[in-house]
């Protein structure tokens, strides 16, 4: 597994055009809301989370990462029946963490991306459930086997999607 530490100078920082910055997260939220109507198993995936991780790792800027996470999370929250902010907080932390990690790791490698996505999916779910139960008092069920399987499934999809979205990157 090629997880190599890199110095700050070697790191390539990318940026995205405005349409990509706006439309890709919107498309992810839209597809997340629409696809499960036809294919219910898609509820196990979290496309907006994958987009947050990708943007955060590519930009390598913690502030940009956390703001992207917050915006996408809040938009996703708006479509659920729960109070707004649950996904917002979880994705803010993931966006910050992914961009901070992007500074230290070679995130262009497929293996690294797989591991990072598995890790951040679990962090995201733990945060979501903790906030939902602790702050809001929602009675949500937690199942480790389910979450671990979902994490791997999301990571596999993530590796494929990241390769696709790499084409949208522009060197800063």
């Amino acid at each position: 597994m090629a997880v190599s530490y890199t110095s700050q100078r070697e790191i390539e920082v990318y940026r995205f055009s405005l349409p990509v910055t706006v439309l890709v997260p919107l498309l992810a939220v839209f597809l997340q809301a629409f696809i499960p109507l036809r294919f219910p198993f898609f509820l196990h995936f979290d496309l907006p989370l994958l987009v947050v991780i990708f943007f955060a790792m590519a930009r390598r800027n913690p502030t940009a990462g956390l703001l992207t996470g917050a915006a996408v999370g809040l938009l996703q929250d708006s479509l659920t029946g729960h109070p707004i902010g649950l996904y917002g907080i979880a994705k803010t932390v993931v966006g910050y963490g992914a961009s901070s990690l992007g500074v230290k790791l070679d995130v262009e490698n497929a293996g690294t991306r797989l591991l990072i996505t598995v890790g951040f999916y679990i962090v995201h779910q733990v945060l979501y459930f903790t906030i939902a139960r602790g702050l809001v008092g929602l009675d949500l069920g937690w199942s480790w086997p389910h979450e671990l399987l979902a994490a791997v499934a999301n990571a596999l999809l993530g590796v494929f999607l990241f390769a696709l979205m790499d084409k949208l990157k522009q060197r800063a």
Partner: peptide, 22 residues
């Protein structure tokens, strides 16, 4: 600590938002 401060502010704002809604 600029980035960490922004992170803390973003989370704090959302927690306040959650608290207001609840």
């Amino acid at each position: 600590y600029r980035n960490v401060s922004i992170l803390a502010a973003a989370i704090f704002l959302q927690i306040v938002g959650l608290a207001v809604q609840v």
